[in-house]
């Protein structure tokens, strides 16, 4: 959280994660290059490098795009989300090798600047079969560059979270550009259907996951809490909320997390100050509400991060009558102390 920035926020879990990424990538590249060297009579190292890095980067991009919806569907995938940005930066560097090497290979031999050559050597923009597909890859690479360059939390704070979020949503445009890059490019040299099938399967998996996760969210948000007394909405029974866990309720437009910590219930805004993670999907660790995405912490009774941290979220009033939990959807200013409510022997 924001005390003083470090270059890379490594801890044991992140180191293991990065180790796994590095191991997988090296193994993939070695196997790919080794196997083509042995089996393909036209093998050249340059081509093998271009193709192994391109396919690896594209594969990683699929994993990156699948992590979000997978976590919404099942919390078992949360460890993958925890360090997704390192996966993203790795993917950018691998794609950079592919793009850089292609530029070098196909555009640096003449006396024209390679970037100029990239856009001017083939201008058949009206032709599908001869389309200058490398330009598409170039624009995708620019998007990946912007994302990798702004991946440190410093950028989240200083570009503002809205701009940052928008910038990082461009990953979907990058994905689309790469799909087109591959379709218009590879299909110019390769006629084997396996490429089309793989490409289609990848896209189908991603679209399905996003649709599933999205419809799940909409269902939750559309749940209605119409029983209202003195501004308090009836939301659930006390026994519905497990110890050290929360349930999320969407009243109006606000998502509110109701947490059970020891023998009390507390209500805070569901949106983490870091990158908007769903606080209500986290748990209480060491007495603090802990965001499931990257572990920012907040005290349940006032929504403040424990000192020396300075993040704050809104708090809400809550009450219990019998076994029923009632929630007031009007937020208090961020960081306002709220006593919560004693569950007692209502369960």
């Amino acid at each position: 959280m924001s005390v003083s920035y470090t270059a890379v926020g490594w801890n044991r879990q992140k180191k293991r994660y990065d180790f796994a990424i590095a191991g997988f990538c090296s193994l993939y590249l070695l196997l790919f290059i080794g196997l083509t060297a042995v089996t393909n009579p036209d093998y050249t190292f340059e081509t093998a490098l271009i193709r192994s890095t391109s396919t690896l980067a594209f594969l990683l991009l699929h994993v990156i795009l699948a992590i979000g919806p997978l976590c919404r569907l099942n919390s078992k995938f949360l460890p993958l989300l925890y360090n997704r940005r390192h996966l993203g930066v790795t993917m950018f560097f691998i794609a950079l090798i592919h793009g850089g090497f292609s530029l070098f290979q196909f555009h640096s031999l003449g006396n024209v600047n390679p970037f100029v050559s990239l856009f001017s050597s083939n201008t058949q923009y009206h032709s599908l079969s001869q389309f200058p597909f490398q330009a598409l890859g170039f624009f995708a690479l620019i998007i990946l560059l912007l994302m990798a360059a702004s991946s440190h939390d410093f950028w989240l704070h200083n570009l503002t979270p809205e701009v940052w979020k928008t910038l990082h949503m461009l990953v979907y445009i990058a994905y689309l550009l790469i799909v087109l890059h591959v379709m218009t490019g590879v299909l110019q040299f390769e006629t084997h259907p396996v490429f089309v099938v793989l490409l289609g399967a990848g896209a189908a998996v991603l679209v399905t996951l996003h649709l599933l996760a999205g419809s799940r969210e909409i269902e939750k948000d559309n749940a209605r809490f119409d029983t209202v007394e003195e501004g308090f909405h009836y939301v659930c029974e006390t026994s519905d909320i497990l110890p050290n866990r929360a349930k999320i309720f969407c009243i109006g437009v606000e998502r509110i997390a109701v947490y059970r910590s020891e023998d009390r219930l507390y209500a805070i805004h569901n949106v983490c100050k870091h990158q908007g993670g769903p606080l209500g999907e986290g748990k209480i660790i060491d007495g603090c509400i802990t965001c499931p995405w990257h572990g920012y912490q907040y005290l349940p009774n006032n929504g403040q991060s424990p000192p020396p941290f300075t993040e704050k979220v809104s708090t809400y009033d809550i009450r219990i009558s019998g076994t029923k939990v009632w929630l007031h959807p009007t937020p208090y200013p961020e960081g306002t102390e709220r006593p919560g409510v004693y569950i007692g022997n209502s369960i």
Partner: peptide, 14 residues
């Protein structure tokens, strides 16, 4: 950005 006070050179480079 007050968070940059006392931050490392590694951070400034990255």
């Amino acid at each position: 950005d007050p968070g940059a006070k006392g931050s490392s050179w590694g951070f400034r480079l990255i």
